[in-house]
Amino acid sequence: MTTKPLEPIIKIRDLTKTFGTVSALSGISLDVDPSEVVCIIGPSGSGKSTLLRCIGFLEEYTSGEVQIEGRLLGYRRTASGLVRESEKNIDAVRRNVGMVFQHFNLWPHMTVLDNVTLGPRLTKRIPTGRARGQGRHALAKVGLESFADRYPSQLSGGQQQRVGIARALAMEPHVILFDEPTSALDPQLVGEVLDTMKQLASDGITMVVVTHEMGFAAQVADRVVFMDHGQIVEKGPPVSLFNAPESPRLREFLDTWRSRNMLFQNDASVTGEGEEGGARS
């Protein structure tokens, strides 16, 4: 995957976001190309979630621009500057962006299959029968076809998150945003979700993944972005970022992470995987 694509799927320029007086993002610029996997790492409060939420327009950004496949997200250009776009047009620009949440956010009163098919049924106006077929296909992709008729509460956390992934997949998005998809899971359930995500990556699905799983980032990411205090401090291929960090803040962040993970050496440790960096079949 080294061919230069025509146009980035996501194009972010000088993005800022403030909550009252708190500045969560201060000047982010980033492109995500088709089929690329970008992992975002950084300490708590550095603005990773806020960045992802701005890309999904769950959060209105304060200044700068987010473009999805060449179309400005959330605002309309007018003579007097940017004006808030209508919900309908926002949906139109955002329709190829999927999101997977830390806490799954499944709808508990619906079966797994209904969770997966509701979006396509309502927004693509396809007949229920076909939507169910596609829903089962999406569930098969995450290995949960036989759970279609269960309710979310009857599934393990890892399975619930895979349903969350299937729900996003069923919309056939061009890019999927993941916000710490494994952080709410018991350690023994993390692997199945990461494996599912690796599968998506090798299928060529464009992904932006906020994660604390450095092993996953090292193994799957084409590029890793390190954020701190609302800024991108360093970005590049995982090999160089993990093995030769340039900024002192990233070095410190990685050192903290390594020393914390020394304690869990036997626990499917990911230290050392950094050397394989960026390999994707």
């Binding site: 999927g98 956010n105 709808w107 509701l118 979006g119 309502l122």
Partner: peptide, 19 residues
Amino acid sequence: GQMEAARMVGIRKWAMRYH
């Protein structure tokens, strides 16, 4: 978060309320 998940699969306000 459940409402945000609905928005991210393109479900509009009234459909989200209903379903």
